[in-house]
Design a protein around this nucleic acid. Sequence first.
RNA 1: GGGCGCAUAGCUCAGCUGGUUAGAGCACUGCCCUUACAAGGCAGGGGUCCUAAGUUCGAAUCUUAGUGCGCCCACCA
Length: 907
Amino acid sequence: MVERYLTICQPAIIGEQIAAMISIDSSYNPKKYEKKWWDFWEQNNFFDTAASNKAPYTILMPPPNVTSHLHMGHGTTYTFQDLLIRWKRMQGYTACWLPGTDHAGIATQMMVEKDLEKTEGKTRKDIGREAFFARCQKWRDVHGGKIYQQFQDIGFSADWKRSAYTMDEDLSAAVRYVFVTLFKEGLIYRGERLVNWDTVLKTAVSDDELYSEEMNGHLWHLRYPVEGSDEQIVIATTRPETMLGDTAVAVHPDDDRYKHLVGRNIRLPICDRLIPIIADDYVKSDFGSGAVKITPAHDPNDFEIGKRHKLPFVEIFDDAAAITEVAPEAFRGLDRFVARKKVIKTFKELGLFEKEEHYKHSVPHSDRSKSIVEPKLSKQWYVRMKPLAEPAAAAARNGELNFFPKSWSKTYLYWLDNIQDWCISRQLWWGHQIPIWYCDSCDHLQTGVEDPTQCDQCGSDKLTQDPDVLDTWFSSWLWPLSPFGWPDEKKQQEKDLNYFYPSNVLITAPEIIFLWVARMVMAGLKFKGEVPFKDIYFTAVVTDKQGKKFSKTLGNGIDPLEIIDKHGADATRFTGVSMAPLGGRVMMDKSDFDHGARFVNKLWNASRFLFNYLDSDTKLKPISEVDLDLPSQWLLTGLSDTAKRVNESFSNYHLNDAVDRIYHFIWGQFCDWGLECAKQSLQSSDEQKRSEVLSVLVYALDGALRLAHPIMPFVTEELWQKLPHHPDWDRPKSIVVAGFPDESKLASYAKSSSQWQAVLQMITSVRSVRQQVGISPKIELDCLIKASDELVAVVDGNQEYIKKLANIKSISISSSQSRPEHSLAAIGKGFECYLPVAGLVDFTKERGRIEGEIKRITKIVDGISNKLKNKNFVERAPENVVLQTKEQLENMSGQLQSLKENLAAIG
RNA sequence: GGGCGCAUAGCUCAGCUGGUUAGAGCACUGCCCUUACAAGGCAGGGGUCCUAAGUUCGAAUCUUAGUGCGCCCACCA
């Protein structure tokens, strides 16, 4: 190993070239270059954007939480965005990737409260609202910057100077404006209903902030005595503690078992209250006992029934879900789960306990505190969603909005078509305080863009602002607008709102389709009259190899920072994108990133090889002045084809496909054949030839670096900067702003390319034959070739390549070459290569090999000829397909014929 | 209970509007330290494309059903 290392390090250079040669390390060391180029880009303001006569291309960056750190979700989702932005920027667009952060109301408040508890042992109430708010702000200042730094480490080329933050003055003004506007239009109202109450955070949360979890619970059957009778009604419940708030028992009106009891009363055990037995269609006779206890204040269904039957609402829980004063003394102050046990125990003691069954059911939890939410009767602010949802749904139906993958539009539409009003008030301190003021004297309620100083109605100056804050999403849904200065006329002009709006594509995770995506569409349509983005791309969910989502608690996440540290940002980006197809799911583990690292290293070394032959004085010719040989034409055609596919794949968001193409062009074409073929020209003494081949290679490498740049910005910049300027390419200060390869401007040579392909096949099949019969690649062989007339000329002019790459001593070619005795045969489309190997091989091996080939080809030939014998196929299939099939048959049966003849010749 | 998606090589996946000798990366086998790269080169092995039926001249690709697995939505106590 050490020995090897020493030989590598010996510079392969001759005499006076030393001084001018381009020096480069023998392997790519990301740490050495990433910081350097990031600073260079930043100093040159390449990512800054402003309205111009160029076309805009805009992507809104989904605001990461201020509290979060970079994770693999960002690694893929955001890399996609950077890819598109860099691609468009190179194509000459004003590519604006708008970054920003979110104040993440509940999440931040939780963190700060925890911190406060830990460091000072205090609660938020201990220090008061103002001090607590300031603490949240400080927390954000400290932690908010971290994620930006991490985004920059991975090379995200957002317009960082435009960074917005939902609590900024301008963005807060937008929130205020929107609230006031909607309020005045009657789209915001205050209502008292059951909300999802987070008993830990002591705030309401919206339906969309819940998740449900299957839990192994119980179904308890309890007996309720009918007043003035010996009869008892058995009711089944999963939540016995709520019986303390029961105000009725309901049965189905047609249920014969209970018909005679409707209208009578139950004497509610423990509480000793009388509650009516009512009939309601909602009750399913076949579930449980067919009788349901009704707790209108603590169950959404019961709430509806309670309203229908005008039942009393008895609230038995306080903010922390402990039992209130309304319950019998023995229960007061108990936690809901403690109370549950006590209720059951009491029923047992009273002899009213029927039975208990195991029961699996899903229980709603709060996303943030992970606690079980409690339905709670409470006064909250709501947005009337229907008028906003309808246009948003229409936009998807009429094609103004396009989903990738398409199927997401169904999910989107289902939600909009069944929209519920949005509860926007939160009993928190961190966030935008609701701009509603109550008059202390007359109870009048008013709002305003400016803080009011007196009551509109009675003139009193004693006003109290609503203590609650707005849901974080109430500021996030303005993301397409507020960071661009909206609604202030002057500011939005300064920030080019109309130039950048609407954005081109939104790329995000599917889990926030309702919380964020749909609501942005609504806000965009409502306030700007146009969708905020045309395309919506949902990325794949990143999971571990077991298919589990990455999560902190499971500890199965891959830390991108660790990967970047080990392999570099480019490798991380490459793997992240190449593994993530459109939609679906992508399973990753750390070893997957080796792939990217290997590719980066390959590109590095290919360039390094070329640099050996280049110096600052190297004269490169325009391609039009080069007498192109076949390998060069083939390579240039490959570049053009690749550019075409890459541009197409970027356009329709098949990013992994684009990455795959680039990978294969660089590795499979440029390195494996392009450089290998070029080696002898580069080492030849023919100055002319050398410079021409070099011109082509530099040109192609420059193109390849451009293609790869959006994926691997750092390494491509480093190499590109070192690469001498080829006159056919533009040469700006950085590859960041260099032109992206455009196939319509790239030369392509279809015919030469396919001719060369045939030569490559020749080389490959000769190698294959040697390998199969066990002749070392080190043994030089002679080669006699029989080939089509077209190929004869091609091979004749390019013998050197075959000799070198297949280790052939001499070549003799003609269209009538016959097979010499004691030779091996490599047979392919349009050619037969004979390798005389007298004494080198056991011919039974060769025989076996050819027999195997015959078997394989016979199968194919049979398949094709059967197809052609089928009259229906010939008549109904399109002409070109039939023609193609005929050609195929001709070709394959030719090969088969040759194989058979060769087998016979072995004797 | 409704909706959506997935099932192709040992593993992770491509295969977009039906016509290929079904591909890639990793893993595996053999041969090569050929001075850009051993994180490499060359050559290979490995697949009844989940099952069944259907449409079609032709299905991995379209239809239907089934099986298995994910995700989302939903108030059955």
